[in-house]
Simulated assay, not measured.
Amino acid sequence: MSAPSSVPLVVHVIDQLGIGGLEVVLVNLINNTPTDRYRHAIICLRGATDFKNRITVPGVSIHTLGRRPGKDFSVFRRMWSVLRKLRPAIVHSHNLPTIDMCVPAKLAGVRRLVHSEHGWDISEERGSSRKYNMMRKVLSPLVDRYVPVSKDIETWLRTGVGLPASKVLHIYNGVDTDFFHPAEGNLIPLPAPGFDLANRVVFGTVGRMQTVKDQVNLAKAFVELSRLRPDLMERARLAMIGDGDLKAECESVIAAAGLTDKTWLPGARNDVAELLRGLNVYVLPSISEGISISILEAMSCGLPVAATRVGGNPELVLEGETGLLMPSRDPVALAEALATYMDQPELMQKHGAAGRQRIEQSFSVTSMVNGYLGQYDQLLGRQHP
């Protein structure tokens, strides 16, 4: 094994190290990189939460810059200072809030810059912001490689932003199929009253409760299910796992319909894999997505998926084969999909098994890591057997 000082350092720049799909991708990349091939460090523009404890590789330094809301130009100086001390071979920034950090990176003498686009937040739905796209285009000469996580984002970078095709290389997110595996035998009931019925069907979602994820749409769909198919409600249950601004609104929608006893909203949890194995159907009601880590994890656990037809979701969920797709912001259409699964339990089993097979074939964490490390090697002119 090479001495640590001879192993190239990749510094990842993110907005904040907390619970989220982008952060899961980053942690999986770091934890699965051979330590004699690349070292990693993380710079957080704002801060880091206990999520950092999921990093299992020793020696990964985490630096927080305390970026203030609004235009905090002092963060550029702090970024330059940290990079001068770390002297990385590559700076790898992630998503819009970090794209302008390529300027202090170049001034600090960093050789190669990589930027990943994982998806859009509600401020630039579908990447339609002319201001942000112009900023991406202006800064593009400083960036050596753009990595979109979906074909949908790849097309947008090339045609919407106008980046040269030679700089854009798509790499799918991957999932740890050993950790996220199907339930063995009968499902283990979720730790909530009324979720232990032998014939119940548990719909569930996992993620930050924020506008772009639109969990309120799922809450409304569950209410619509009770209106359209009251005969199903003795068995129907809903788990909404995660925390954020929309949690209170979801609880209010459910309570107003008198369905609180059929739902479970426990907030953020650290036992997601176990909880997924207590679901029958995974639901993702987002307004916008890149390549959803939560869908990958759910499919890896053998769950059928009901998801909105946005972003990279159709690249993961093959309609009629591994799940069902519907328009975003349409609770009636989503309720009808939930009813379809309740009426056809054999369809749940068929879609879930096909989804697990699809993950094993196309979305392993090994493939994802090899994709990123291969790009690092190419940019640095390194040979790897």
Rank of each mutant, 00 (worst) to 15 (best):
S2P: 07
S5R: 08
S6W: 02
P8L: 06
I14H: 02
L17Q: 02
G18T: 11
L22Q: 02
V24L: 07
L26I: 04
N28T: 05
N28L: 07
T33R: 03
T33H: 06
T35D: 13
T35F: 14
R39C: 06
H40C: 03
H40N: 12
I42M: 03
L45A: 01
L45N: 00
V57N: 03
P58C: 08
P58N: 10
G59L: 12
G59A: 07
I62K: 08
L65A: 00
P69N: 05
V75F: 00
V75I: 13
M79I: 05
R84A: 04
R87G: 05
A89T: 04
T98L: 04
M101W: 00
M101K: 01
V103E: 03
P104L: 09
A108S: 13
G109M: 05
G109E: 10
L113D: 01
H115K: 05
H115Q: 13
D121C: 08
E124F: 07
E124A: 15
E125L: 15
E125G: 08
R126I: 10
R126G: 09
K137T: 07
D144H: 15
D144L: 10
R145I: 04
V147T: 05
P148G: 09
S150W: 10
K151S: 14
T155V: 11
L157V: 07
G160I: 05
L163S: 12
S166T: 06
V168G: 09
D176N: 15
F180T: 08
E184A: 14
E184C: 14
L190S: 02
P191C: 09
D196S: 14
F203A: 00
Q210L: 10
T211M: 12
V212G: 04
D214V: 01
V216N: 02
A219Q: 11
R227L: 10
L228C: 10
D231Y: 01
A236L: 02
R237H: 06
R237F: 00
R237V: 07
L238F: 02
M240H: 06
M240K: 09
I241C: 14
D243I: 10
K247S: 04
E249N: 07
S252E: 14
S252K: 15
V253K: 12
A255T: 11
A255L: 08
G258I: 09
L259G: 09
T260V: 05
D261V: 03
W264V: 04
L265Y: 00
P266R: 04
D271N: 15
V272S: 12
E274P: 06
G278H: 12
L279R: 03
V281Y: 03
Y282D: 08
L284G: 08
P285R: 03
I287W: 10
I293H: 03
S294C: 15
L296S: 13
C301T: 09
C301K: 11
G302F: 14
G311N: 15
N313P: 11
E315Y: 14
E315L: 11
V317Q: 11
E319F: 06
G320L: 08
G320V: 05
E321I: 10
G323K: 02
G323R: 03
L324K: 00
M326I: 04
S328D: 13
D330Y: 01
E336G: 00
A337H: 04
Q344M: 05
Q344E: 12
L347C: 06
A353F: 02
A354N: 15
A354R: 13
G355S: 12
G355F: 09
Q357M: 09
Q357C: 08
Q361L: 07
F363D: 06
V369G: 12
G371M: 10
Y376L: 07
D377P: 03
R382K: 07
P385A: 15
